[in-house]
Write a protein that binds this DNA or RNA. Structure first.
Lengths: 219, 219
DNA sequence: TCATTTATATATCGATCACTACAGAAAGGA
DNA sequence: TCCTTTCTGTAGTGATCGATATATAAATGA
């Protein structure tokens, strides 16, 4: 037994290494760039060359910092959720009624999907991801679960609305939640094709009329 | 000037060649297979190897018959439109009122997107195509135009409904058309993630309530 | 100073990408 | 039969894919 093998383990986490040559680039900024690229072009169509050129580093640096293309995509999904998705859902969680929650969700989605952020891709990164159909089963399952979150949140908000007496017990909770999920998903596709904020807000308005008719809401 | 160059031009059309070795495979069946693959995996993620293996031919045969991957994709889009998309829109065009047209469109979309056809991919090939974001500008524009057709058709049907007195002049035609386009697009995404026919039909039902509230329809 | 540790830059790796050169096979026309 | 035409099978083109081996640079600890 000579020198213990002592796996050299590169530094992949956010915390800086205690010893050794320091990283020469901003890991957070690199992750932001990667998120932007994956968001815009998708997983398959974004190459390692695209990433390293946009970030301004060599491929070994990228692999030392993030491990693999798949691992980087997973981190990018989390970065997207924390920095962009969270903004869309802020008013949903603070609104006083389920109706206000859902209306805020659709209106804020219309705003953020159509260029609210500076030069960011249009439409939701999770909704528009087709990585599951491209043969990457594990990543596909991850984004599929991410898409299901929208349904789960609206469904939970509806149930609490029923519990608080906002709606009668007879309201069809799953269908209403799925309707909102459908409209929000469709808005991502229209946003990517160039729909304006006003156009998507008009869509949200008609959607809320359907919501009101189904829930028995009186203005 | 010896032998005239006489471009040998391979036979890419449907009409059989008058002379020379006959094609050993069914071009229409090959196109159907290609459509299925492009529909399921998308343009980028579908390789020439995927195509030749599924069809059961060598790559030179594929190139002799279809020209290039891009040209094959364009043909596949037309094949999809003629064989699948057309079915979804049949009742839309035969219905007596604009309301019946739109309701039929959403219900038939719910049916065809969720496994009506044998072992076919779920959701609309055109709606789910992200070839435009993958760097293929020309193909991207083609599918974007294909997606705009849905809006144009609903908009035209609404206008004729206004002309026939089905709706008052004050009805917001573009917003209603865009709302239907949004719902139909979102249904493709939900269908790909596994939504059932009944679930999508329930979504269509809520959507029609929004339509009715906006158009002033009384049941 | 010098060993250890970690990151960087250069130069690849084998695999796969879309695509094709080439030669032979299979048809019709003469 | 022989020529022309077109398709097929083999084998490969250069380019790019994701990922890495290697050597060196830059930091800390002793």
């Amino acid at each position: 037994m000579q020198k213990s093998p002592k796996t050299p383990q590169t530094q992949k986490s956010t915390t800086p290494a205690l010893r050794g040559r320091p990283r020469a680039f901003d890991r957070e900024a690199a992750l932001a760039q990667a998120t932007r690229l994956f968001w815009h072009k998708g997983y398959e169509a974004t190459s390692i060359s695209d990433l390293t050129e946009a970030i301004g580093i060599g491929s070994p640096s990228l692999y030392a910092a993030f491990g693999s293309k798949e691992a980087l995509y997973v981190e990018a999904l989390h970065y997207y959720g924390d920095h962009y998705q969270a903004l869309v859902w802020a008013r949903f969680f603070s609104a006083g009624t389920a109706r206000e929650s859902v209306e805020s969700l659709l209106l804020d989605a219309a705003a953020t999907m159509t260029g609210c952020h500076n030069d960011m891709p249009r439409g939701c990164m999770v909704t528009l991801s087709s990585v599951g159909s491209e043969g990457h089963t594990e990543l596909g399952e991850l984004v599929r679960l991410g898409r299901a979150v929208a349904f789960d949140r609206v469904e939970a908000r509806l149930r609490s609305g029923v519990a608080e007496g906002e709606f009668p017990d007879s309201v069809d909770v799953p269908s209403l939640a799925r309707f909102i999920q459908t409209v929000q998903s469709g808005m991502s596709l229209l946003a990517r094709d160039g729909a304006s904020r006003a156009e998507l807000e008009a869509v949200a308005e008609v959607a809320m009329l359907g919501w009101d008719a189904r829930t028995g809401y009186r203005a």
